[in-house]
Amino acid sequence: MKPAPFEYIAPESIEQALAALAQYGDEAKILAGGQSLMPLLNMRLTTPGVVVDINGLDELNYIRQQGERLHIGALTRQYRLERDARIRQTVPVLAAATRLIGHPSIRYAGTIGGSLAHADPAAELPAAMCALEAELTVVGPSGSRAIQAVDFFQGALNADVRPDELLTEVRIPIRKNAVWGVREYTRRAGDFALAGAIVLAEIEADRWANGRVVLFGVEDRPLRVSPAEAALTQQALSDGQAAGVAAAAVNGLACHADLHASAEYRKQLARVMVKRACLDAVAMRDGKKGQENMTGSA
């Protein structure tokens, strides 16, 4: 189980990286943390002609606050997202979602950009970006583009980043008084979710505003479900209404089926995850659960 032959280049700047991508186009594959790409290479499920290793691009490794936004460089390792004090303060839901990725040693290597560009439908970070209404920056030969997270994910393992482009940054709006919940169900701790949900809202004078409900692992991409968001925002949420939000979230949902979950069971999981994430958010509002205690699993 060894990779097929390829050539290797390790650019030292974004320009060099783009030049390499421009030159080798479809033949090239970007290597970031390698936690998704390397298994595919080892199994020869992907056989690129050139591997462009971007780990030398230190300029893409950062977390900064710029006004009301948090800017995160694509090469920032996942473990930093879960530990970084600023993230825990300003967008704690991101830290909580990140903790659900694989195992510690996966997160020491994996990058935020790699997870987003890989666009696994069951991955946490794409869902978190949709929930946080992040904007993604992609640079290519003709300059840079800004893409809303919900538009970036176009299908299973299919993100809006062309072979000659590089995802460089995500920008996350910071919103005050947020309450949230992240839940997912896995058979084994650390596995990809069979279904997961992120619920997020802001408390404005006793009202829930800007509610967001995102499902992951259920269809071919993370899914913002507007009827559920409407239900979430309509009134001050109570325990009983969480079930209503959950029902709205899965109404008409056509989940995919795989080895571990039939479509119907997956739908049930999605419903339960939304409900539990809502209840976490309610508990947070009521001060019953501190943000630090949110582990989020099942």
Binding site: A10, L31, Q35, M38, D53, Y79, S105, Y108
Partner: peptide
Amino acid sequence: CTVLLNGLPVRSCLRLAAQ
């Protein structure tokens, strides 16, 4: 296959020697 890379545990099967 875990090794410490700059002190952090990572899977050495998911990394190239060149890196």
